[in-house]
Write a protein that binds this DNA or RNA. Structure first.
Lengths: 152, 152
DNA sequence: CCCAAAGAGGACTAATCCAGTGCTCTTTCC
DNA sequence: GGAAAGAGCACTGGATTAGTCCTCTTTGGG
């Protein structure tokens, strides 16, 4: 199964919280409780977002975290990159073009694969945190006809 | 790092080989040698593709595998699904709408996330094996327009 | 008609990765 | 000065993944 990491899920959820919270400082323990996540996990994630410049922190008594950038200036790609690292679906999708994978002599798909990767990166980069919080009734998207092309 | 599995890489490479090989039967040992992959790994992959109806096999002496469907009738999604399973970036992207993740009570991103997932699934479903072997630029992924329901 | 070449199928193992833990240190406010 | 909060590690247990091994079946050729 191709999946974001669980940490990324948590991260999106947590950042989502901050969009609804104005400028108030929010602390780890409270988030952990409200979202029933292990406190240490929340602490680690927020720390990372902080390092990456998505959140700012205030230490000491009554400290906590808050958004450093506007919710529509934070992309899904930003969030994922912090936690799961770069989107690099194959080795040859690496940003440094010099990198050659072990199969470059027999592989004819390098540039199409890079393009596929780039399309997905672009897409994730366009998707903002505000849009992600814009939930609609699940029913509108629900009719997933399982159209996996023409499979068997 | 968000990545396809190594097995998926191998799989694409191997299926790619079949597009250049007309209807001739190709055997495991030859592929393993040509692509310097472990023979057993190649065997496992081809077996899976066969089960999934992308390849057909011929047993016995001078046996081997060949494509069962045309290269432009096999999507990247088809190949990935066989090896890495479904593209399901988050739990809530599962096809069965009933499924509720542990965080559904505090999550406001379910339907946008499902939409993101669907866009990517659609995109991978449009990308064919032939395109992967020819250096053709794939279509872009349309951004989610949250106001209009353009969803598939 | 028997043997070797090929795929089918499954169980197993080793290594890597990831989620989650535990500690100690620093900062800040009261 | 002490308690509440974040910072920064290093560690562990379990799951996942890559790769292996063995036995069975099918098929064609001598």
């Amino acid at each position: 199964m191709i999946r974001f990491s669980k940490m990324a899920d948590y991260g999106v959820l947590l950042l989502g919280h901050f969009t609804q919270n104005g400028n108030a400082l929010v602390n780890t323990a409270g988030l952990a409780e409200q979202y029933h996540m292990p406190r240490t996990v929340v602490a680690n994630l927020l720390k990372e977002f902080c390092k990456a410049g998505l959140l700012e922190s205030r230490r000491g008594l009554h400290g906590g975290y808050r958004l450093l950038r506007a919710p529509d200036d934070i992309s899904l790609l930003d969030m994922l990159s912090v936690i799961d690292g770069p989107v690099q679906l194959t080795d040859c999708a690496a940003e440094d073009i010099i990198h050659q994978c072990d199969y470059s002599d027999v592989c004819h798909s390098r540039s199409p694969m890079r393009a596929v990767n780039q399309r997905i990166v672009d897409f994730l980069g366009q998707m903002t945190l505000s849009e992600l919080m814009n939930d609609v009734a699940p029913a509108t998207i629900a009719p997933l006809d399982t159209s996996t092309s023409t499979t068997s």
